[in-house]
Amino acid sequence: MTASVDELHLIARRIRKTVLELSHRAGTPHLGSSLSCVEMVTAAYWGGLNLDPAFAADVSRDRFILSKGHAATTLYAALAMKGFFPESWLEDYAKSGSPLGEHPSPGTPGIEMATGSLGHGLPVGIGLAMASRIQAHDNRVCVLMSDGECNEGSVWEGALFAPSQRLNRLTVMIDYNKWQATGRSDEVTALAPLCEKWSAFGWRAVEVDGHDVVTLSQWLNAPPDPDGRPTVLVAHTVKGKGVSFMEDDNNWHYRIPSSSELARALAELQPL
């Protein structure tokens, strides 16, 4: 782990603040989804993987894919703090001509692939892990998906294939916030029991607290599974986490915070 526990918590609060401000300023949705994966993104960039602009052109670098591309603001906040692009870029987020759109676009520093259409990250992550193995690189590949994303057939095509290849340097994190755009994710499809499904597919499947940045970091740093299985962290989270009046309220999938709501939300994040 490269950052201390206190630092990890501070970084997560700063990312939350940026996410709230960006949604308010640009008037863009998916705030609840962005808030629920803050600790996972923090763990990836500061607690587990080796993600640094210095290695941006190194083909054997660790890879992080935000497959739930609608949480772009969380990723942008992390990339700016990590120095992939100037923090000033955030000011133009989602404005005409900005490289930072509502969904991540390849070619933007730190963005590995286009996401926004769900179910793309896992197959691409599998291909990256296979390329590393062919070339004898020992880097890690991490894909962050949403629970609603698990509706997509391509997720389960990948879930079937990755264990057959024994890709134990591949880790999937599922932001299991129990909501998708218009309903409870366990009701829209028979998602539960989610961890058991992945386990039955041949993955090292672990249920974790998706807001426990320390445990998440430890798992991302864990040695590859000795049995060759890829790892999936089924991370229980709360949609809208960190802002009391947004937590577990699916209206914040699309709602934009007003100025007073932003002020109330930021006040809850203290101390920064």
């Binding site: 691409v124 291909g127 296979m130 390329a131 062919i134 095509e157 990948g158 294939f161």
Partner: peptide, 26 residues
Amino acid sequence: PDRFYNTGVAEADMIGIAAGLALGGM
């Protein structure tokens, strides 16, 4: 032997895997 893969009856997955391989330098 390490450069042939039968990715199964899963064409969507196969294209995504190909994209990942290309991103990884293959």
